[in-house]
Amino acid sequence: MQIAIVREVIDAGNITAELKAGADGAVCVFDGIVRDNTRGRRTLYLDYEAYEEMALNQMRSLAEEAIAKFGVRDIAVVHRLGRLYVGESSVLIAVASAHRGAAFDACRWLIDTLKKTVPIWKKEQFEDGAVWADGEPFPEEIVRG
């Protein structure tokens, strides 16, 4: 597993190449990038910050859970922090598996779950002001135990 929080450009090609092994029939890659607008409001850049030690622990547990749940062989999850401009990658998730179905399913589950539970936040800088992005509500079991 490669689990990392970085402040430099995410090297998607290298991460994906390193993940591949002979037993794999598929690598499914999700590359999350900074869009140029939110609801039509033009975005200049995003500032990402994290509760870093906890975020890393959460990312590692999610990857372990995905391997157990979907039977995929290996996973890379890399998130970038700091200031990111339009078109840059904020997160890369790559899943290697013998079969594509499991790789797609695990990849989708990983990004959806990461967005709800991994303690990372972003502030969106627009042309006319800045706001902390509304996160999705925490899953009930997290807020109340």
Partner: peptide
Amino acid sequence: ALLPPVSGGAPGDAC
């Protein structure tokens, strides 16, 4: 740690 709803990953789906 007091954690507001998280918003990592790819931007904007929640919005």
